[in-house]
Amino acid sequence: MAHGNSPAAAHHSGERQHPTPATYAKIATTLVLITMLEVGIFYVQALHSVVIPIFFILSVIKFALVVMFYMHLRFDARLLAWVFVGGLVLALAVVTALIGLFHKGLLLRP
């Protein structure tokens, strides 16, 4: 659905230089390493009681790396970051609230 009234050339004010392919490669390596770490943790039985926070933190890091560098949100206009983070936070809030309402023992202990 890419169409509109605006100039076709992609130059946006307020957008800084995108990362170089070398940076991209570093990010890719980090993503692969974190995923390997996650799969490794999965096979350690002793850690199964604490997997939720560990996996949560690790996937948040991966998520953030892709959004900030591959989707170059870090280098784009601030407004775009607000738009996306707004949707994301709202989604997280709704998911958390719904899970809290259905699994009362999990989140909400009256």
Binding site: L90, A93, V94, L101, K104, L108, P110
Partner: peptide
């Protein structure tokens, strides 16, 4: 408007906290 939806469901037995 996002924080009030369950007031449509007060009588389904969500419990006193909710």
């Amino acid at each position: 408007g996002w924080m009030v939806w369950a007031h449509h469901m007060f009588t389904v037995g969500m419990g006193p906290v909710a």
